[in-house]
Structures are given as structure tokens and as C-alpha cells.
Amino acid sequence: MAVHRKPRQRPHTGSAARTAATLAFAGAATAAVLPGSAHAEPQPTPTRIKAAVDRLYHDAEVATEQYNGAKEEATAAAKSLNALRDEAARRTERLNASRKALGSLAAAEYRTGGLDPAVQLALSSDPDQYLQRASYVEWASDRQAAEVSNVQRQVTEIAQLRTEAKNELAALTARRADLKKHRTTVRARLADAQKLLDTLSPAERSGFERVGAARADRSAPRLGTTQAPNARAAEAVAFAYGALGKPYVWGATGPSSFDCSGLTQAAWRSAGVSLPRTTYTQINAGRHVPRSELAPGDLVFFYSGVSHVGLYIGDGQMIHAPHPGAPVRIAPIDNMPFAGATRVA
């Protein structure tokens, strides 16, 4: 009687581990041969695959907002570092000039200070002229003391600037490391989502990608433009309508593509209002309003981590940039777990 030994499985690592875990979450088919029979687990349903893809897109969006925040901080740190370096260079030039002036004063005093003042007066052929010179020497000594104090102060200030620049460089290095980490996470989640989508048949995938896309056209009825509480909100809503159908690209702020917070930032920028870059900073960029009091132009946020944002247009609808493969579109705010709302202006 032959002995059947189950082949030893190698553990998954890296991207393969993530994909395997996601497929397991979706109930993906992994052929498992049992002793004495050949029994395969059922194939995952399109509904389960869609749930897994949605989860991956959500994870990618969380990482995208973290990427956006790190990018904004890196930009600010780089700007601050350059300003500190420029100021240190200007201060160093002034310090060198002060040192040169101090050196000239010291040399002049040395040339005239070799004899005791009483001896200099006794040897002088013109006592009045000597007294005038002595007064000048006293003034020069006072000026030299002031120059010494000035040089010391400048040296201290430059040292402080260089310390600040060193700290800013460390902050910039950390932000760039964060950028790399979040970028890697986004790309990994999107790649895993694509692998799951590739398991669908053309018809199933077409149906999945059409979900929610029916109102991504620019000819959709324009809610909110006449109901907005003020002209700025109406302008932001009008901009969002103009973005309908444009692609989602993570990290993008327009004009040809957007991510979720990039769209809301661009919409309000068109109305003359500057919003911060990320969802978790935009939620504090205005007055919080309850869901029952939403008005066109309000920012609506979703998920417990405030990782998604859209622009409310009225009648329970918003315009938002959903995820890669889904263009800017109109959608019900009930599609995702509501986290809060902010009225910008």
C-alpha cells in the first residue's frame, strides 16, 4: 500500500503573503488535496472579491493620505532648511566684515599704544594735538569693545542658526523616509487589488467597474449650485462638477486628475479658499456641522480614521474621487461609514 505524503508548503513572504492573505479573506480558491480524495474549495464569488478589493482600496487610501501629509511636511521642512541656510550665509558675510573692521581697529591701537600716555605727552611737540589724538584713541577703544561684543553676538547667532538647520535637516530626512514607506504601502495595496481583479472574468470585472459610475458624466443634474449657502460654496460645487469623469490618481491635486482630498482642496481653491492637504487636517479647517444640517459645499468625511472626503452637493449626494479605476463621480453619502462634516465658509 502506497503512502501518500502531503507536500511541504513554503511560507509566503512579501507581496505573495499579502496577496495570499487577501485571497483567503475573499474566500479564494486554494486547492487542498485531502488523503484519498480530490476536493477543491469553492471558487470565491465576485461579491467576496469586490469586498476584498474595496478593503485594499481603503487601505491604499489611508496610506495615500499619510503620504500626502508626509509630502506636505517634507516640503515645509525643505523650505525652512533653505531659508535657514540662506540666513546663515548672510550672517556669515556680515560676521566676516565685522571681523575685518575689528582687525583694523586692533592694528591701529597697537601702532599707537606702545608708549605710556604720560611719556607720549612729554615727548609730543604739540600737546594739544596729542590730547586730540588721545581722545580719538579712547573713542576707538570704546568702538573696539563694541565691535568685539558685536562679533561675539554674531558668532552665537550663527551657531544657533546652524543648530536649527541641523534639526530641520533631520526632520526632512524623517519625512522623506515616511514618504518612501507610505508610497510602498500604497503601491503594494493597489497591486494586490489588481491581482484580485484579474481573477474575475471580463464580464464580472466590467460589471464591477461599472458600479457607481453611471453618474460620472458632466451632464448629470447639477444639485447644489443654486442651493449653496454662499457664492464661494457654489463655486466649489461648480468646480467639482467640472471634474466629473477625471481619473483618480493617488497624490494628485489636479487639474487633470485627483485623489479624494486633492479634489476637495482644488474645489475650494477655485473659490479663493486655501484648504490643508489631507483629510485629517481638512476636517478641522472649518466649523463642524451635524449630518442633519449639511449644505452644498460642505466637506463630508468617512471611516473612523477620517481617510476619505467628498464635497456635498445636496439631496444626500456628494462628488468625490473614489479610488484608482473609478473616476470622479457623484455618489450617495450613505455608501461609506460617515465620520463627520465641516463647513469651510
Rank of each mutant, 00 (worst) to 15 (best):
A40E: 15
G310Q: 05
S125P: 15
A40V: 13
W268T: 08
S206L: 09
V211P: 12
Y248W: 06
G207W: 13
Q144K: 14
Q282Y: 00
G310H: 04
A214N: 07
K71L: 14
Y130P: 00
L121N: 10
A28V: 09
A177F: 07
A177E: 14
P7Q: 03
A106H: 05
S201R: 04
A345C: 12
A2E: 15
V273P: 14
Y303W: 10
A51C: 09
D116K: 01
Y57H: 15
S274M: 10
V273S: 06
A122S: 08
Q160Y: 07
Q282S: 04
D128K: 12
R94F: 08
D86H: 10
A63L: 02
A32N: 12
W139K: 15
S135K: 08
L275S: 02
I158L: 04
F208A: 10
L56Q: 06
D217M: 06
T45I: 06
D54A: 09
V211H: 08
Y248Q: 00
N335F: 09
L161M: 04
Q282N: 05
K195R: 11
E293F: 08
S219G: 12
A101L: 14
H12P: 15
S37I: 13
N284F: 03
E164Q: 15
P42T: 06
Y67D: 07
A171E: 12
A60K: 00
R153Q: 13
L95A: 07
S141I: 12
Q265W: 08
L275R: 02
V306D: 13
Q43F: 06
G340A: 04
T226M: 09
G27A: 02
G103Q: 05
T30H: 12
R133P: 01
A240C: 05
A285T: 02
A51N: 05
E73N: 12
P290I: 08
I333R: 10
S37V: 14
A339P: 13
L95K: 01
A101V: 10
A228H: 02
S270T: 02
S307W: 11
T30I: 14
E138I: 14
L161H: 05
G316N: 03
Q132R: 12
Q66H: 12
N335I: 09
L84I: 01
H288L: 10
S98H: 10
R232S: 10
R91V: 07
N335K: 09
P255V: 02
K79T: 15
T45M: 08
L299H: 06
G103E: 06
R189P: 08
R48V: 08
I283R: 14
M318L: 04
A321M: 02
A174L: 07
G272D: 04
R210M: 11
K246Y: 05
V306K: 11
D128P: 04
A101G: 08
Q317V: 05
D198M: 11
T30L: 15
R183P: 03
R205G: 02
R287L: 14
T47N: 14
P7E: 02
T264I: 01
A24Y: 05
